[in-house]
């Protein structure tokens, strides 16, 4: 017991698995759907598959879309009222008794209001609690800064035992919700408020802990999560027209991080742009950079929110104003390519 076991929490082998990489090309007009709807639909289906699933909510049943579960399984649905700290620990108690509790609230409150409860009761005890953080990111829109959760990745990934998934669209949120229910341990799921482009399909491969190459490329890799995956795919089209070949990786699982895939992208493409709807400090870009500086150093650019609170506005306006668009990824790609050593 005097020796401290150093166990890498990040994944290595996963990306070496034989995989059918999705090759995603977007049509001109993409179907729009809410990621949180994927969460709600998956919970309703999970409830049927596994009697251990319990859902808790803090007075946000419809906005987190857990109301479908509530209608089907009222005896396993717990309304906690507006008490997120209480809810986090109640979920811990349920998990200690062998339930698989999913709690749902806005990400701003799940990550910040109940951070201590997540750290001590849930994570330190390594309890099988699933935290659903809805309304992540600036695209929450008119509610403004208080409701635009943009610190979740840095908070959650710094806590031992926690895992985290930031799915990119409806289908991926659906699959991620099913997948984390099967993973034993605390997981934070982040999803958004708005209708966002559906870039994947029901059949697109998804594995917890493994990044997906959504489109191949040679000159650089764009690593994105959440709604920024769509922007990355659009950026790739623009870059292709300029003769630049960009790989796009959907790194939905922030933790455990698919380090092997990140290293491979660094080696094979020699430059990385990350894109996330989150603060730049400690987010996806930081997580990727931690791997890059230790495994294979290449120039990087980080597309993110640069240390400022959000504000009210239409989601689209805000995505533009905060530099979270395909054109911003293209500009970052141009910067990173300029820094890339010439062969």
């Amino acid at each position: 017991m005097a020796t401290i076991e150093i166990k890498p929490t990040d994944t290595e082998g996963a990306s070496n698995d034989p995989r059918a990489d999705a090759s995603i090309t977007l049509p001109d007009k993409v179907e729009m759907k809410k990621t949180r709807e994927g969460f709600g639909r998956a919970l309703a289906d999970l409830g049927e598959q596994d009697p251990r699933i319990v859902v808790l909510v803090g007075d946000l049943s419809e906005s987190t879309m857990v109301h479908w579960f509530a209608e089907k399984f009222p005896e396993r649905f717990i309304q906690v009222g507006i008490a997120e700290q209480n809810m986090m620990c109640i979920a811990g108690g349920l998990a200690a008794m062998g339930k698989i509790p999913f709690l749902a609230t806005y990400g701003a409150f799940a990550s910040c209001r109940s951070a201590d409860q997540m750290r001590v009761t849930v994570a330190y005890s390594n309890l099988n609690v699933k935290i659903g953080g809805a309304h992540g990111g600036i695209s929450v829109g008119p509610d403004g800064a208080t409701h635009q959760a943009m610190e979740e990745i840095s908070i959650v990934r710094s806590i031992p035992n926690m895992s985290m998934v930031v799915p990119c669209d409806f289908w991926e949120t659906y699959k991620a919700t099913i997948a984390v229910a099967k993973h034993n341990g605390p997981v934070y799921l982040r999803f958004g408020r708005e209708d966002v482009p559906v870039v994947t399909q029901k059949e697109t491969p998804f594995a917890f802990g493994r990044g997906e190459v959504f489109a191949e490329g040679r000159d650089l890799t764009i690593i994105a999560c959440g709604v920024m995956v769509y922007e990355a795919l659009r950026a790739r089209e623009t870059l292709a027209a300029q003769g630049v070949s960009a790989r796009v990786v959907d790194l939905h699982t922030i933790k455990p991080l698919d380090r092997a895939l990140i290293e491979r992208c660094a080696r094979e493409t020699g430059a990385i742009v990350t894109a996330e709807e989150h603060q730049v400090h400690g987010g996806l870009g930081g997580a990727v950079a931690e791997v890059v500086v230790q495994r294979h150093v290449v120039p990087m650019e980080l597309v993110a929110v640069h240390d400022r609170f959000g504000q009210s506005g239409k989601p689209a306006e805000l995505m533009d104003a905060f530099g979270l668009r395909a054109k911003d990824i293209v500009a970052a790609a141009e910067r990173v390519l300029a820094r890339k050593p010439k062969r």
Binding site: I78, N86, C89, I90, G92, G93, A96, M97, K99, Q117
Partner: peptide
């Protein structure tokens, strides 16, 4: 709160 969760289970 933890005990409330246990009792609910």
């Amino acid at each position: 709160s933890v005990c409330c969760g246990v009792a609910m289970a």
